[in-house]
Computed example of a mutant assay.
Amino acid sequence: MVKNAWLMLVLLLVFPAQAVPTDEITKVITEQQDAWNRADLDAYMQGYWHNDKVRFVSGNKFRYGWEETLAAYKKNYPDKATLGTLKFTINEIKMLSNYAALVVGRWELTRAKDQPSGVFTLLVEKIDDKWVITHDHTSD
């Protein structure tokens, strides 16, 4: 019994516990939700891979590129009224590897005139030691 306790202590010292990737991924999405609700689209976009290859699929359209997507968000959501209040609900995070995960969930906007909602599927990858969304498929 004492040998097992020492072995566990040595293993913990040699291989310290690390954050569970799903917690880190959830944090990225929660930070996006919070940024949206502050009407800070620049901060919202920090959850995405800042690269021309980031891909967005929505409304029967494909969009590539971080800058283009930020510009589209700013055009389509010019003020707090159009942004509304965003709520993400994560249904599942499936780890594909140590560096990639598939996230499936729902989104809801609450605005004065309407309450649009839909679903999303995200490919989230660990790039340069940071979890970022590299592919976003969102629909109504």
Rank of each mutant, 00 (worst) to 15 (best):
W107H: 04
I133A: 14
N4L: 06
R106P: 02
A17G: 03
D42G: 06
D136R: 02
V119H: 05
G118N: 08
F62G: 11
W6A: 13
G47H: 04
N60T: 05
R55C: 13
D136K: 05
V54K: 00
W131T: 11
H137S: 08
T69F: 05
R106L: 10
I29T: 05
G47W: 02
G47D: 05
G84E: 04
W66I: 08
V28K: 09
F15N: 13
Y64F: 14
A39E: 11
T89H: 13
A35F: 01
P116T: 07
L7W: 03
T110H: 01
F62N: 14
S58W: 00
I25P: 05
A81K: 15
V20L: 06
L7M: 08
M95A: 13
N76L: 09
P78A: 03
D23G: 04
A71W: 00
A17I: 08
E24C: 09
Q33F: 01
L83R: 15
Y64N: 15
P21V: 10
L83H: 10
E108V: 14
A72I: 03
K87H: 11
T121P: 01
S139I: 03
T89S: 15
G105T: 01
Y77C: 11
Y73I: 08
F56C: 08
Q46W: 00
W107G: 08
L12W: 06
W49L: 09
N60S: 09
D140E: 05
Y73H: 05
V132T: 13
Q18W: 10
V14Q: 10
Q33L: 01
A39I: 01
N98A: 13
V119R: 12
R106T: 14
D140L: 03
V2I: 15
S117P: 10
G59H: 04
T138E: 09
G84S: 08
D42K: 04
A72F: 03
K94D: 13
S117Y: 05
V103Y: 07
L109H: 14
E31Q: 12
K53D: 15
K80A: 15
L13K: 03
R63L: 15
Q18K: 12
A17Y: 02
K3R: 03
L7Y: 01
W36H: 09
W66Y: 14
K75V: 11
F88P: 07
A19E: 12
K113F: 01
N98H: 10
N37S: 11
G84K: 03
M95S: 13
L109D: 05
A17D: 07
N91S: 07
A35M: 03
W49T: 06
L109N: 12
F88M: 13
S58R: 07
A39H: 07
V124C: 04
V14S: 13
E67R: 06
S117R: 05
L11W: 02
E24W: 02
T138S: 15
D23R: 02
V103E: 13
Y44M: 14
K87W: 00
P21H: 04
L9V: 13
R55S: 12
E68Y: 02
L102H: 05
I93V: 15
D79K: 01
I133V: 15
A112P: 11
W6Q: 15
M45Y: 00
T121S: 15
